[in-house]
């Protein structure tokens, strides 16, 4: 529940963060730093001061920028193929080795 600084009760404390990235998550450090910063500055000021940390955390967990990059590049490749700048034969790169990911 995200009501907590305005409306605080034992129940909001209990249900504050049931789901987080602290257990075996790749974004553990990002989340920890953002939450530490928020704890230091409080909610209103923390939103301004910890902006980059929070952005990094959301990028780590939701990958907005990476997906945007992906879409831009796929579109650019399609555009190049359709415009004839790229030949059909070497339109796409050869695939990686299948068990390397």
């Amino acid at each position: 529940m995200s009501l907590s600084p305005y409306f605080k009760s034992p129940f909001t404390d209990l249900t504050g963060s049931i789901v987080n990235h602290q257990f075996f998550g790749k974004c553990r450090k990002f989340e920890e730093r953002a939450i530490d910063c928020m704890e230091a500055y409080g909610l209103e000021r923390g939103r301004r001061e910890c902006k980059t940390l929070i952005e990094d955390f959301t990028e780590c967990s939701l990958a907005h920028k990476r997906l945007a990059r992906f879409e831009i590049m796929v579109k650019e490749r399609d555009r190049q193929i359709n415009a004839g700048e790229r030949k059909k034969e070497d339109g796409y790169a050869p695939p990686p080795v299948i068990d390397s990911f």
Binding site: K26, E55, L67, P95, P96, I98
Partner: peptide, 30 residues
């Protein structure tokens, strides 16, 4: 940069990014 606080860090790509430049069929095969 993807992560502003650590611009030079190694970022593990997502699956789609890893297969970004290949055609769709080889991605689906994997």
């Amino acid at each position: 940069p993807i992560f502003k606080t650590r611009p030079d860090a190694f970022i593990e790509p997502k699956f789609h990014e890893y297969y970004m430049h290949t055609d769709l069929w080889s991605q689906k095969l994997r």
